[in-house]
Amino acid sequence: MLARRYIYRVIGLLVLLLFVAFFGVPLLWLLLAPTKTDYQLAHQAPLAFGSLGTFIHTFNRVINYQGGLMLTWLKNSAIYSGGGTALALLAAIPAGYGLALTQFIGRRTLLAVTLVVMIMPATALVMPLFLEASAVNLVGTAWAVILPFAFFPFGVYLAYIYFSSTIPKDLLAAARIDGAGEWGVFLHVALPLARPIVALVAFFAFVGDWTNYYLPFVMTYTNSEYPVTVGLQILIGSAPIFSPTASGYAGSEIYRPDLAMATLIGALPILIIFLFAQRTLVKGMLAGATKG
């Protein structure tokens, strides 16, 4: 019996290790790539370590590429994602609250529509959105990216689930009797209790916006407007090894370790935000709301 349990454990562990290797090795490779020169990357073992000096050198090359274009892209990403997330929260949290805890004509229809657009691929909407933005002369401005980002049905749905499952209705009734109007009930009672869901929706919205490629690709025109995702594509385009026709200005050539470094720099903000958001996500705010 004991031996058998031991064998199951070992098999389980092996399966887990296999998955860890499958998903972990590419990440490790990405981390190690900028430590090597282009030649080393091509000729050394895939997981070999180059040198810390090369890593720093690669970092400086990427940051200083064409007079700090990478920083402009990061700044653009921050504006687009930050603005989009703020607007998405402003819309999604009250909308979820309204769908969950108030009664109005068309509530069920609206909920169904939310679900439908939630499962629709966002890419499918990019072309019509472009035509719309073009019609009102927004293309090429930050609003052409931020306004579509504000549309976040998944966030509405998350907020709806949270409000309908965790806020006791008597709590809202108590606030109404205590003299609060509908906005007061939302602002003083529902919203303070919704901090975990605000954090979660903000996190999903921000990650979605930050990693979105196709929408800003369509909506923006110039290097100075691109976010980091589109910028990465520009970098790949100016690497001679991928685009032989790319004209290499002296000193502005891009090599493969540079691309890996740019990817790491582009993903870093998400990592940092995740670390901050996670704390709020696990906070149990409802202890003692009712009998418990």
Partner: peptide, 29 residues
């Protein structure tokens, strides 16, 4: 609406505001 009726109610589950302290709960109205 309830807020214009000048009534106060004690609920079976008390319905205290969990994010406010006792003073905040008492003084909310």
């Amino acid at each position: 609406p309830p807020r214009e009726r000048d009534i106060a109610m004690v609920f079976q589950n008390y319905a205290l505001y969990p994010h406010m302290d006792v003073a905040g709960n008492l003084g909310f109205a």
